[in-house]
């Protein structure tokens, strides 16, 4: 059984079809990279899987652990183990990162009928993870992402990913706006979370990220479909020859 199975997915927004019959199968333990030009539908795919409102699914299905993902609200999907690391994480003034993390983690645990973490256990866990990502304690006491640098925001996404222990991680351009050092830290955090039970979908424009997070499968997306899939060497080929060849194939 695949962890995630996307079949013939057609999705539009305001009468404009963005995904046009997309198929994708991701097994537990695998890391998939999705590459493709701007407007090919990569980010739309990540939002539809995670349940952002406003998209119309006209055909196809998404199965996650053999369940119909499209029938669930976004918070249910989160509790089932779907995590999206945002390209542009939002700022929430007045809500400290620590409080946000606790509210979110406890909401997920409640939805799964698990005990909420005690405050000391929770704090201890957050501190451990934060340390491994070079996140200073002071940052956790500030408003969520308020005044964070681009790199800090992305590290905060990985912090949440580590804390929530999702089974499917979708990383939407996690490398955008990162300098070399920040990229190394973020990639290190992601690699540390690779496990046989967990799958990742890494969306990126650049091969550079895939030097740090080595994928098992690379997909090339164009005009709302997966045009070609292959091993990690496909990323090198793309860099040498560009996306144009795949668009022509459409």
């Amino acid at each position: 059984m695949a962890l995630l199975e996307v079949r013939d997915l057609h999705v539009g927004i305001e009468d404009c079809e963005i995904l046009r019959g997309l198929d994708l199968t991701v097994n537990a333990g695998e890391v998939h990279a999705i590459m493709g030009p701007n407007g090919s539908g990569k980010s739309t795919l990540s939002r539809v899987i995670s349940g952002k409102p406003g998209y119309q699914v006209s055909a196809g299905q998404i199965l996650f652990k053999d369940e119909d993902l499209l029938a669930m609200e976004a918070d249910e999907r989160a509790a089932k183990g779907v995590f999206l690391a945002f390209q542009y994480p939002v700022e929430i003034p007045g809500v400290t990162t620590m409080n946000f993390l606790r509210a979110a983690l406890n909401a997920q645990r409640k939805a799964r009928a698990q005990m909420e973490f005690s405050t000391p256990d929770f704090m201890k866990r957050v501190r451990e993870v934060a340390k491994s990502l070079n996140i200073p304690q002071g940052m956790l006491k500030r408003g969520l992402n308020v005044g964070y640098s681009g790199g800090e925001k992305k590290r905060n996404e990985i912090l949440q990913m580590a804390l929530f222990e999702p089974s499917l991680c979708i990383l939407d351009e996690i490398d955008s706006g990162l300098d070399i050092d920040a990229l190394r830290i973020v990639a290190g955090g992601i690699n540390a979370l690779r496990s046989p039970e967990r799958a990742m979908i890494v969306i990126t424009h650049y091969r550079r990220l895939l030097d740090h997070i080595v994928p098992d499968v690379v997909h090339v997306m164009s005009k709302g479909q997966v045009r070609k899939s292959g091993g990690k060497e496909l990323a090198l080929e793309l860099e040498a020859r560009g996306y144009a060849q795949f668009e022509d194939a459409a």
């Binding site: 918070d75 999206l84 003034p93 007045g94 979110a104």
Partner: peptide, 30 residues
């Protein structure tokens, strides 16, 4: 309260209602 902020919270497991409550309480914190 932007839809992006709400979706971010909901993607992290909060219900829509919890998300609104969280954002508003943050706004009124001072």
């Amino acid at each position: 309260i932007s839809e992006d902020v709400l979706f971010y919270c909901i993607q992290r497991g909060l219900s829509q209602e919890e998300a609104v409550g969280l954002v508003v309480n943050g706004f009124a914190k001072d």
